[in-house]
Design a protein around this nucleic acid. Structure first.
Lengths: 257, 257
DNA sequence: TTGCTCCTCACGTCACGTGAGGTGGC
DNA sequence: TTGCTCCTCACGTCACGTGAGGTGGC
């Protein structure tokens, strides 16, 4: 190797890099550099006789920092402001950016996993057991409205909570296997068209509360989850029938939820 | 738990979610959903009596897929095209997206490490040894031009190749410690102002080639690196002096590079 | 002279965000 | 009636990309 194989970077006046060389060197576009000038991220260098910008090593180093922050997802305006920030303010900002970056990496990993689930077809069709379950509902005398509702419901639950969906589904299957509980669900379905003030609504609410207490005790499931899915789904159910709406109100009051 | 705590998702006609509910549910903005409609990513649902869009579970599932692909960085136009893609084409696309995602995660990790280096001040000032080295150069009789050149050079190298910069630097220090090699570097510095055709240029080139062969044998360092930094730096050196330019040509020819 | 790089507007793009002005359900 | 959600333009924004039309060095 020659005594100074990397002995060049500057010429006589110390600024030799043209904008194109600087861009290729640091790995950003020429346009990006000009934008950084316009927005005050990178000081404009002096011009040579032809009006060309001439950059020195200092610019290259600054630009590398800027590029790194841009890659980290920091807005250009923020990067500009950080130029004039105090030292500990800068440190604090870098800590935040680091935490942000770490969150984004975790998010991308989750995204990757979800895409693999898609590729595995986990979302293209519901598990076969769900189809069997829907057929079973029809056989048991549930309305088509109820079956469709259940179909869409499980699609959503399996799509958004694949980890716990199977557990929830198995619970439903077991409920349907108990004749007394099955009857309650059938009555829930039929209550759709009742007058909200019909005594049968009150009666059904009482039976549901009792069955729920017996099955789950005082620790109601679905309360500890941080998802808003239960609330959303119940809201949609309520929207479709005044009787169902009143049923929900009564149950909610009794269970103290 | 009530027999059907998540039995709601649809009302009579099967589409109960308004755009706002759907948006909150899936975790995207209302505007984003409307954009996906406009660009053909998500089919427009039917409207209710008020002209409001009413969505079903199918839309929610589709939207979750879209959001996941968007998070993965897939352009909207691409996502739209994938809707009508054949099955194995889709699988191929998902493989590419996965590879892409993996590369982005790696990139973000590298960015994170570089930001930590910045925070540690590894770039704010050069290592102290570099400053000592520059002082040493002045003491040895190098021109200020050479010293400035070296300063900017090491700033760049340490900024872009922190891993190997120290190795390269140590090599330079050892070269300067050898009196014969030191003289060659001094002559390189002085050659800046020679006439390119001066016989001393040819002589210096010969000595550099011999010294390089002796020091590194046939295996020249810097050739195997995938970086274009050496070439860039040499280009800048050459630009500042016709004599240096000719020197580079002669050396290059002799070493067969 | 040719080809390459550079210059400065200026408009385009991508994925939305943000009112402007109006309507519909509890 | 009030407050909330929804509707449709339409323009704004962020970080550049992309010519348009012209100049300068080998």
């Amino acid at each position: 190797m020659r005594p100074c194989p990397w002995g060049r970077v500057k010429c006589d006046d110390g600024r030799v890099l043209t904008i194109g060389r600087l861009a290729r060197y640091v790995g950003v576009s020429i346009k990006a550099i000009r934008v950084y000038h316009d927005k005050g991220l990178l000081p404009e260098p002096e011009r040579d006789a032809s009006g060309y910008r001439r950059y020195g090593a200092r610019h290259a180093v600054d630009l590398i920092k800027i590029r790194t922050l841009v890659e980290a997802g920091v807005p250009l305006a923020r990067i500009r402001d950080l130029r004039s920030a105090a030292d500990d303010e800068l440190r604090q900002a870098l800590r935040e950016i680091d935490a942000n970056l770490s969150a984004r990496i975790r998010g991308l990993r989750a995204t990757r996993q979800r895409l693999r689930d898609f590729a595995d077809g986990r979302l293209r069709a519901l598990p076969a057991e769900v189809g069997d379950h829907l057929d079973e509902l029809r056989r048991l005398g549930f309305t088509e409205r109820w079956v469709t509702l259940q179909s869409d419901l499980w699609l959503l639950v399996f799509a958004t909570y694949p980890e716990t969906a199977s557990t929830m589904f198995d619970d439903q299957v077991r409920i349907l296997a108990d004749p007394a509980l099955q009857q309650i669900v059938l009555d829930y379905d039929q209550a759709h068209d009742l007058d909200p003030l019909d005594a049968r609504v009150d009666d059904l609410a009482g039976r549901i509360v009792a069955a729920t207490r017996e099955r789950y005790g005082s620790e109601l499931p679905g309360q500890d989850t941080d998802s808003e899915i239960p609330a959303l789904i119940q809201g949609e159910v309520n929207a479709s029938s005044p009787a169902w709406r009143r049923l929900d109100t009564l149950i909610r009051k009794s269970l103290g939820a």
